[in-house]
Design a protein around this nucleic acid. Structure first.
Lengths: 140, 140
DNA sequence: AGATTTCCTATTATAATAGTAGAAATAAAA
DNA sequence: TTTTATTTCTACTATTATAATAGGAAATCT
């Protein structure tokens, strides 16, 4: 049940972008340095976020990444679904047909309940919430 | 965020034991056959459940596994914590000291919220609930 | 032109997961 | 007492996913 580093790095990177929302593009190099993440790996983490339309980019010097949507409209749920594909704890929660047993499986229904709980929790945490929390925790 | 097969197999096996609670020991071979699980692998899955005291065993012919506690007193949370160690989506949720960043990390707090949501959801599903659901889904 | 940054593709190291295998220990039944 | 059926214990292995690392191409600004 562990979240991948992809999901964690993506979340932290997007919080950085949220903190600079409306300003200049942010360089991945700076995020990587501040967050102790390998630049080359972070590049790969950002790729699906661009495809999904959460970030926009500008090449060249003065280039970088910007958040493509208002921070209060992007949730952890969307971010994780984008980089990990799903928050389902089991494949059958997304695709019952994968297991012939699904319909009559009592645990199948429990896993769907779990997925729903995860979805609810992550869906209510926005980048704006996280950015606000960040400022609160780091005001010194 | 995928649940391991260990966690899923353990849950399904314990439901089988819950269905036979108070009766003869149940052979792992039978559970393995009914649930399409490798017997040898299931043996390993059951090991921590015995150590944690969720099941008792009897060797030899007429032997097998029995649930050591009433089905309504055992939850999915306990089962998964037993076989996977924790339901935390990130290590820092159990052990903040592992990451020097924890205290000032806004996502750290989000992951703790997620762990709590998972804990609440799994903690309210007992083997008795699952066994009841099973009978409901399979009455034919 | 030159510097800087994103973009794209390939490769690799590491670890975790999932499963297989064989034989020893134990208990019941014949 | 022998046989049979089961759990128990330990070791091994295959497969996959994760987490990087690396090098260079393309674009953009000064």
């Amino acid at each position: 049940m562990q979240l991948s580093t992809k999901a964690r790095y993506a979340s932290r990177a997007l919080v950085e972008l949220a903190l600079q929302y409306g300003e200049e593009p942010v360089k991945l190099k700076d995020i990587a340095a501040r967050q102790d993440i390998s630049l080359k790996y972070l590049e790969q983490v950002m790729f699906p976020l661009r495809v999904c339309g959460y970030v926009k980019t500008q090449k060249g010097s003065k280039g970088g990444y910007i958040l493509a949507r208002p921070p209060q409209e992007v949730t952890l749920l969307e971010i994780i679904e984008c980089v990990e594909g799903s928050v389902a704890p089991v494949e059958c929660a997304d695709n019952p047909d994968l297991c012939k047993r699904s319909e009559r499986c009592c645990t199948h229904h429990a896993w769907i309940g779990l997925k729903d709980a995860i979805t609810r929790e992550l869906g209510k945490i926005s980048l704006a919430d996280l950015a606000g929390k960040h400022l609160l925790l780091n005001k010194d």
